[in-house]
Write a protein that binds this DNA or RNA. Structure first.
Lengths: 208, 208
DNA sequence: AAGCCCATGTAATGAGTTACATGATTCG
DNA sequence: CGAATCATGTAACTCATTACATGGGCTT
């Protein structure tokens, strides 16, 4: 078997399976839907369509337009639909390489002056609130619209996540107010790393 | 101002600010801590150290060892500490390009036969349970360890997120059992996209 | 006249991964 | 004797982004 294709390839395939369209169309649609949890740039859409075509998974129908440029409307081939369903059915696994910029800063943030940490947390709270609000209005709008179920439930997933993280902010607020942060002096502190080896600093260089 | 450096550069800088060490050490530490929310491969650590050195943000002290290979122990320069704090203080923004492989499949999953959707959800639940369990034990172990506060709270962030998503699974279970999924027939259905334009399919090609 | 929309790309750059190379030491 | 650990890389590759190019039509 050849090297596994990137998820983005299947994402584009899935998009034109939902609704056939030009590369431009699909990119615009991706930007309004998948972008929340799987951003794809316009250029990449074209590249993936090229690949999908060479794999025989999509087929382009040239559509002439009078006041607009001609375009190719892409839809999946039967084979394309088959591999899409196959890919969808494969388990997702837990380590999906999720990157969280906030946590990165938060974890390293013991170095920060308290005021900066304050600002970081406030900023995070604000963006979570905004996200919750946005998603709430999306959900409300999609209520009862046939065929919008998956979109609405995806938005709900994001909203529940945002809510939980806001609750987390309240939860840690108490703990950080006690200002019990010994790691503010890095040279003397334990690393505080999330390890599974009993709390000792692992991978210490063995001394001769 | 030159192009912004990737967050990973600051991540490595932050690591050796927490605890100076060889590239090997830092990679191992990253693998036990940051890997949960910011994975960095070993090779990349070396490349970033090189860059950090050329920027004058870290300094390497050569340490001779008798039974082990010599190594360079990296620590941040005063300038390095300054830019680290500066970077930490910058707001994180909401759209951090978070990718969620599960949501990608879930959203496109209207195409799937119900059994495959079932499998996808069960799989997701299982990995969330595992994650919650792992993080719970991490948190318990870090209880009361001085200097482990940030690590513990980061783990708590992950646990709360996992809990909320498990609750989301329960929440949607009811809705999906009704089997009201008109988008199972893509050709006839609305796209169900998360848009902000009033629920109509946007970017339709204007007809002449 | 300026500027956006539709439509399709090219080119350059950069981030990140995986596989591989090397070589001493130490553990089972 | 083989495997793992410590230590530092090189090489090749791929995903993804950003900037740029082109050009007709429509809006203000």
């Amino acid at each position: 078997m050849a090297t596994a294709l990137p998820d983005t390839t299947y994402a584009v395939l899935g998009l034109c399976a939902k609704k056939p369209g030009s590369g431009y169309d699909l990119a615009a649609l991706a930007d309004q839907s998948l972008a929340y949890f799987w951003p794809i740039s316009r250029t990449l859409v074209y590249r993936e369509l090229e690949r999908l075509q060479s794999l025989g998974w999509v087929d382009g129908e040239l559509v002439h337009q009078v006041r607009l440029p001609d375009k190719s409307v892409w839809s999946p081939t039967p084979e394309g639909r088959r591999v899409l369903v196959e890919w969808l059915a494969q388990p997702v696994g837990s380590h999906t390489g999720v990157r969280n910029r906030f946590l990165l800063k938060f974890f390293l943030g013991a170095q920060m002056p308290p005021a900066a940490m304050r600002a970081l947390l406030d900023d995070y709270r604000e963006s979570l609130c905004a996200m919750r609000g946005d998603l709430a209005s999306v959900i409300e709008r999609l209520q009862g619209i046939p065929g919008a179920t998956m979109g609405r439930l995806s938005a709900l997933h994001g909203m529940r996540t945002a809510e939980a993280r806001l609750a987390w902010l309240d939860e840690i607020e108490i703990e950080l107010r006690t200002d019990d942060r010994p790691e503010a002096h890095p040279e003397r502190a334990s690393t505080g790393y999330i390890t599974t080896d009993g709390g000792q600093d692992a991978h210490r260089t063995r001394r001769p």
